[in-house]
Amino acid sequence: MQRVNMIMAESPGLITICLLGYLLSAECTVFLDHENANKILNRPKRYNSGKLEEFVQGNLERECMEEKCSFEEAREVFENTERTTEFWKQYVDGDQCESNPCLNGGSCKDDINSYECWCPFGFEGKNCELDVTCNIKNGRCEQFCKNSADNKVVCSCTEGYRLAENQKSCEPAVPFPCGRVSVSQTSKLTRAETVFPDVDYVNSTEAETILDNITQSTQSFNDFTRVVGGEDAKPGQFPWQVVLNGKVDAFCGGSIVNEKWIVTAAHCVETGVKITVVAGEHNIEETEHTEQKRNVIRIIPHHNYNAAINKYNHDIALLELDEPLVLNSYVTPICIADKEYTNIFLKFGSGYVSGWGRVFHKGRSALVLQYLRVPLVDRATCLRSTKFTIYNNMFCAGFHEGGRDSCQGDSGGPHVTEVEGTSFLTGIISWGEECAMKGKYGIYTKVSRYVNWIKEKTKLT
């Protein structure tokens, strides 16, 4: 034993070699072989497995989906700052455009905790909710729209109204504003409101030439003092309507412009014939205590009207009353817009006519005020429907199939267009061939041609 100890002390290297040989010859039971080890760690190889990531292109799944990435790591994937920024906006807080917040056709661009709407022409605001041009839906104005110097929408209202708090709607500024039905039992019968379409306001006024200088022999019209197929109006439903009495009662109609003036057809009036105007009328054979009678003290036909040349060209006249009318729910003026808007309103496509005229061709006159909704007829169809001249200051309205029309005794009465609950004068009943005849239409004086003249002559002093 002493000898062994001496050998170990003198030859430590020998001992180490012996131990190493023993270990190498022993069977290893701690580690699995290569094949079995792979069965336990069965993990798919990654895209760049075996390579240094710093030297390969980034992978979106590896960089940002398996674990949260930084902007720089995302930049490695896209290799483009702009594309990385677009991805980053949604990656950080989701897609803010998912709810489609942009209105009126706006395009949404996502941002971090926010979004941006790219608005089409005519709109602005956070969600493109603000109209900035009158060309689109009248700028959301209830009545009139004008573009300011910086191309912003400025709404306005006709006389007797003021802008509401929203700067879009119009509200009454006087007790009985024009064009409004205020009798409670008839307010439910107000005709369907007309909503502004998209309009090209630059070209809204037709490029028409008034044929002022045409000389033409007097034409022989049949029954051209021209509501057939209409309905009984309720008291106060058309408070701007008046009836004219002269040699015979209810020979023509008219509309209240203001307390002192009536507008009617020029062919209705004769110099030297006494005319009485009755406002607030409903049943011409009954006294309903809503009527107001006034005498006409002055007749002003349009300066281009000449019955000797043509009885229905420039067929418009103004009547001055001896005493002002007292405005109330049964006696209310009709609204008159400017030339541009009167023309736009007419193009809405349908209007209402009213009167006490004959209820059928050569038949009896109506006792109760009649009204009828009539569609506008395109000019080409209008011209083809008659052998008589249709001037540019006239328009056609009615039904091709016949059966409904204005008729004798309705002449001078109103053709009105309702705009968001307020009625505007767009025409004056003038003439036609018979009444409600198939293929024939009622012919009306186009008020847009005469609004400046009306307003100039009827100013209240």
Rank of each mutant, 00 (worst) to 15 (best):
L130C: 07
M437L: 15
H415S: 01
G105I: 03
D131A: 05
T332C: 06
N222E: 10
W453T: 00
E208D: 15
L163M: 06
T342F: 00
R180N: 02
K68Q: 09
S350D: 09
P333G: 04
A279Q: 00
A266S: 04
K387Y: 06
G413N: 06
R3M: 13
E61L: 03
Y352K: 02
G357T: 15
T422E: 01
A317P: 01
K455L: 07
P239F: 01
E159F: 07
E35P: 14
V4H: 12
N147M: 10
L321Q: 01
P301T: 10
L20D: 02
T81Y: 11
Y330T: 03
V56F: 00
D33I: 10
A265N: 03
M65W: 09
Q167T: 09
E259F: 04
Y22R: 04
R384F: 05
R46V: 01
N147P: 11
K68G: 06
F224P: 15
G439M: 05
W261H: 02
V242Y: 00
C28K: 04
I454M: 06
L460R: 12
A250M: 07
V451S: 11
I256V: 07
T458K: 02
T186N: 14
I214A: 13
V278G: 04
V269D: 02
G179N: 01
L52R: 06
V331Y: 01
S448K: 02
I316S: 00
T276N: 09
H302A: 04
D150A: 10
A37P: 05
E10K: 14
N258C: 01
Q370N: 08
Y391S: 15
G280M: 02
C157W: 00
L367K: 14
P172I: 05
D198G: 13
S255H: 02
M65H: 09
V242H: 00
L23W: 13
K126S: 12
H415G: 01
T81I: 11
H289Q: 09
T133M: 11
V183K: 09
F87A: 03
L244H: 03
D232N: 13
Q2Y: 13
E171T: 09
R449I: 07
A173C: 06
L41I: 06
S411H: 14
D33N: 08
T158R: 01
K152A: 12
G105D: 06
Q96C: 06
K234S: 13
Q96H: 13
C108S: 02
D315A: 02
D249M: 09
N304T: 06
G357E: 14
V92K: 15
E53G: 00
C268G: 00
N127E: 06
A192L: 12
C69E: 00
V30W: 14
V202P: 15
C170W: 01
E159T: 10
T225A: 08
F71I: 06
M8V: 08
I336M: 06
F345Q: 02
D410P: 15
T194D: 11
P235R: 09
V92W: 09
T381L: 09
N5A: 14
I214E: 14
F395A: 01
T16E: 06
I214R: 09
Q167E: 08
V277K: 00
R162T: 12
N452I: 04
P375S: 15
H303S: 07
W88A: 03
E73W: 00
A266W: 00
T209D: 12
Q167P: 03
Q90K: 11
D338G: 08
S99A: 11
V92M: 13
A173S: 14
L321A: 01
K387R: 12
V248Y: 12
Q219R: 07
S187L: 12
T458N: 01
N42V: 12
G403M: 14
L321P: 00
D315E: 02
N328K: 02
P177S: 05
E76Q: 01
K438N: 10
Q241W: 07
Y201K: 11
M394Y: 05
C18S: 12
Y305C: 01
L32D: 13
V374T: 06
V331P: 00
T342H: 03
A164G: 10
G106H: 03
F221A: 14
R226Y: 12
S114I: 07
C157S: 00
K68A: 05
K39S: 10
E124V: 10
G21Q: 09
N283R: 11
V227L: 12
G403R: 06
N59S: 09
M65S: 04
N283A: 07
C335M: 00
K457R: 15
C117N: 02
Q90E: 09
D410E: 14
Y441K: 03
N48S: 03
S70E: 10
Y22K: 03
F224K: 14
V419N: 05
Y352A: 07
V374K: 03
E193V: 15
S204K: 12
N258S: 06
N5S: 14
F196H: 13
S184C: 06
E171L: 11
G272C: 06
E76S: 03
I275E: 01
E418A: 10
N59W: 01
V248I: 15
F123R: 08
E82S: 08
C157N: 01
L244D: 01
E231T: 11
C102R: 02
D223N: 11
K347L: 07
G421N: 10
C69M: 01
K347W: 04
V331H: 00
L244N: 01
I429F: 15
P324G: 05
S148A: 09
V227K: 10
G280N: 02
P120G: 09
E10A: 13
V195H: 12
S423C: 08
L321S: 01
E124I: 09
S350G: 08
E54D: 00
V353M: 05
C407W: 12
E82I: 05
Q219P: 15
L32W: 14
I256S: 00
M437H: 10
F31R: 10
S70A: 06
I17W: 12
S11A: 13
E10I: 14
F238C: 04
A149T: 14
D405T: 15
N135M: 12
D93I: 10
V77M: 04
I334D: 00
E270N: 13
S423T: 08
L60G: 02
L211V: 13
A337G: 06
A436S: 10
G13I: 14
V56E: 00
W88C: 02
L376T: 07
Y201W: 10
C178Y: 00
Q408S: 12
C119F: 02
I390K: 06
D410V: 12
K446W: 00
L163P: 05
A26G: 13
S107K: 12
V174Y: 05
A265W: 01
R62T: 04
N295E: 13
E433Q: 15
T461C: 08
S411I: 15
C117F: 01
R226M: 12
E142V: 08
I262F: 02
L211W: 15
D200H: 06
Q408M: 12
R62V: 03
G179I: 00
P197V: 12
S156Y: 13
I344Q: 09
I300N: 03
N113W: 05
N328T: 09
D315Y: 00
Y341C: 04
G432E: 09
A436P: 11
I40M: 08
D150K: 09
I390N: 11
V153I: 11
N135I: 10
V4D: 12
L325R: 00
